[in-house]
Amino acid sequence: MIRGGDIAKGSVLLINSHPHIVVDREFVNPGKGAAFARVKAKNMRNGNVVTQTIKTQDEVEDAQVDLIDCQYQYSDAEHFVFMNNESFEQYFIPFPGHEDKKFYLQEGETYSILFYEGEAIDIKIPYKMVFTVTESENYVRGDTVSGATKPVVCETGLVVRVPLFIKQGEKILVNTETNEYQERVNS
């Protein structure tokens, strides 16, 4: 069980027996009322997002989950395929609810996978990741019409706005929550 006041982004709740990961949480105090946590939680099985409000003093059921390091291998028509780094067991995570993750999955890289009752239910994307720029238009010096940045495409298809000096083939560090460029990485 978890207290409403302890629920945070990333907590996994059991709602109608389905694991839901908390994607947003805010505390609300209605006029003349007790404190409540208002959470948005995503059903890990179908991707549906629900809103729930829980009194900060009340307890709700949480899901006992495990995090295991797995290597991303490839995606087939319906799944992302991972391999357990220790047991070499393969896991198939269906796309629904995780579509947006494809922009952050690089073959051969290790990710933490969230397991609930033996089932792989979520992929934890690192807060910052290095990407290679695969498509970038050349901007001439002095072209400031569009500001000091330009959009580039990375190897996963992720589009990031970067400073004009970044060229195709270079590596960049990106904040994966905001998709903001952080810095150029010297390889």
Partner: peptide, 15 residues
């Protein structure tokens, strides 16, 4: 009653 009211209000009505 008040807590149940607030849960419905804050989840479905206020937003």
């Amino acid at each position: 009653w008040e807590d149940a009211f607030n849960q419905v209000f804050l989840t479905l009505v206020e937003p």
